[in-house]
Amino acid sequence: VLSAMPTFTLPILRVPKKILREVDKCRRRFLWHQDDEITGASCKVNWPTVCAPTEQGGLGILDLQRFGRALHLRWLSTSGT
Rank of each mutant, 00 (worst) to 15 (best):
V1G: 11
V1A: 06
V1C: 04
S3V: 06
S3G: 07
S3P: 00
M5L: 11
M5R: 10
M5V: 09
P6F: 01
F8K: 02
F8R: 06
T9F: 13
T9E: 05
T9A: 13
L10T: 02
L10D: 01
L10P: 00
L10K: 01
L10R: 00
P11Y: 04
P11I: 02
P11N: 08
I12W: 08
L13V: 06
L13I: 09
R14C: 12
V15D: 00
V15L: 13
P16T: 03
K17W: 02
K17H: 10
K18P: 02
K18I: 12
I19R: 05
I19S: 09
I19N: 03
I19V: 15
R21H: 12
E22V: 04
E22W: 05
E22P: 02
E22Q: 13
V23C: 08
V23T: 12
V23G: 06
K25D: 04
K25Y: 11
C26E: 11
C26N: 11
C26T: 05
R27E: 02
R27M: 06
R27T: 04
R27I: 08
R28C: 10
R28S: 03
R29P: 05
R29W: 00
R29V: 05
R29D: 06
F30H: 07
F30G: 02
L31S: 03
L31E: 02
W32I: 00
Q34P: 02
E37W: 05
I38D: 02
I38A: 07
I38M: 11
I38G: 07
G40P: 02
G40V: 00
A41E: 09
C43N: 07
C43H: 04
K44A: 05
K44G: 08
V45H: 03
N46E: 12
N46R: 09
N46W: 00
W47I: 00
W47T: 01
P48T: 12
P48E: 11
T49W: 04
V50K: 08
C51Y: 01
C51D: 07
C51A: 08
C51E: 04
P53Q: 08
P53A: 11
P53H: 04
T54R: 15
T54V: 15
E55K: 15
E55V: 14
G57D: 11
G57N: 12
L59W: 06
G60F: 10
I61A: 00
L62A: 09
L64H: 03
L64N: 01
Q65R: 13
Q65P: 04
F67W: 10
F67H: 08
R69W: 05
L71T: 05
L71Y: 03
L71W: 03
H72M: 07
L73R: 14
L73Y: 11
R74E: 13
W75E: 13
W75Y: 15
W75G: 13
L76F: 08
S77E: 15
S77F: 13
T78H: 14
T78N: 14
S79D: 13
G80H: 14
G80W: 10
T81S: 15
T81G: 15
